[in-house]
Design a protein around this nucleic acid. Structure first.
Lengths: 215, 215
DNA sequence: TCTATAACGGAGTGAAACGCTCCGCAAGGT
DNA sequence: ACCTTGCGGAGCGTTTCACTCCGTTATAGA
């Protein structure tokens, strides 16, 4: 799903492959909950792995974050593809949104601009964007999506609901899905009032991902 | 509005009073945008004030945050009162939500639990909660608010939309109010499907505000 | 005008946190 | 038995940050 290959290896190499996944999961958990300022050591601890092992895989904290972004984008692509596979346009869109919120797509937006984005990241992002646009257009043409809602609106909505408030728990999960249900209903075409303001600008959206120094 | 008195004083005392307000505004801006981990020096800089002057007013960073919380709660109370003053139940509720999101109520939720809450904070919070409950009940009884939505749902919704993504700008403001409009429409009674899951528990909600060590 | 006072700004300090390196060790593989 | 490979984590050097301290400046009173 995330593009990682299953560990056919044995012995030490198997452990290494396992650690890879543990590390990625841990990084997501830690950075999503504690912000990207969380120490790298916390990621290692959460994964149950030594710091040394972490740094053998990711030369720097920045590299870890970049990889995390890439994986998240690939997951978003998978989710969009799954949504398009649903023959029901509206249900497909909802499914996409739900899955993105669940695995935390867009949680990395606050980190945007703190490191260089690789060309691979840009091309992956473009692929994801195209799929989502198809998904949104389809729902729009089916007359199911509220008038004026763009793919960027959806992306920003996902960002909003991705960010965790407090530590993960059943309660938190429950509350988040309640609110998400409310927002999704607001997206449905049963709401006919036009949206206020202008649609989000792609320029502004993507602009956040170009590297700028911290100062 | 926030309980601060106007500066009738002159000269240096007037400057001090002005600095008080500058400092509060700056603290909101900085902590809301950069997270509560932002350095105190950044607050002083944003206010155009020396660090020394900041520390003469607030003995510690914690004291500054506590005061910020208190002020935000008082603003929430004002907003709720204004909402109740509107004779239209639904419009009053919407007004309350909009104003809270605007000035950033609930943005301090992530900070919850990092410092002791004073008795004054608890009593202010109770006052705010009671007002909001009246506001919500009124809208519910008027048949305008979607079935099953509680005051805590509203509070959590506000939290979600309060948190800034990226630096403040017209674009950001525009996008946020678009999404908020969507969510508010989802709250309207025109949506008849029941909300998923359980209502948020007050215990969990308030539990976040009791002090716990960082570890 | 001169002095006392009160508020100011910001360089400096001590401590803590953090990214990352390095190395001794254990587990396979042959 | 011996090499290779991956492991864990103590520790190093740096940076950051909350807070202090003090020289400076503006006002008030005499």
């Amino acid at each position: 799903m995330t593009g990682e290959q299953p560990s056919n290896r044995r012995g030490r190499q198997a452990e290494a492959a396992r650690n890879d996944l543990l590390l990625l999961d841990a990084a997501r958990e830690v950075f999503f909950c504690h912000g990207f300022d969380a120490p790298v050591s916390m990621v290692a601890q959460q994964a149950g792995v030594g710091i040394g092992s972490l740094y053998r895989r990711y030369a720097t904290k920045e590299a870890l974050l970049q990889h995390l972004c890439l994986v998240a984008m690939r997951q978003a692509i998978d989710a969009a593809a799954a949504g398009l596979a649903d023959t029901e346009p509206w249900q497909g869109l909802v499914e996409y949104i739900r899955r993105c919120v669940e695995f935390g797509a867009g949680a990395l937006a606050p980190i945007a601009g703190t490191f260089d984005s690789t060309p691979e990241m840009w091309s992956t992002a473009r692929e994801a964007r195209d799929l989502v646009e198809r998904l949104v257009d389809r729902a729009q043409h089916a007359g199911e999506l509220r008038n004026g809602v763009t793919a960027l609106d959806i992306a920003l909505l996902i960002e909003r609901f991705t960010r965790r408030i407090g530590l993960p728990s059943d309660e938190e999960e429950n509350n988040r899905s309640r609110l998400l249900a409310i927002a999704i209903d607001g997206l449905h075409a049963t709401n006919v009032e036009p949206l206020p303001g202008r649609p989000p600008s792609a320029q502004h959206y993507e602009g956040r991902w170009v590297h700028r120094d911290t100062n």
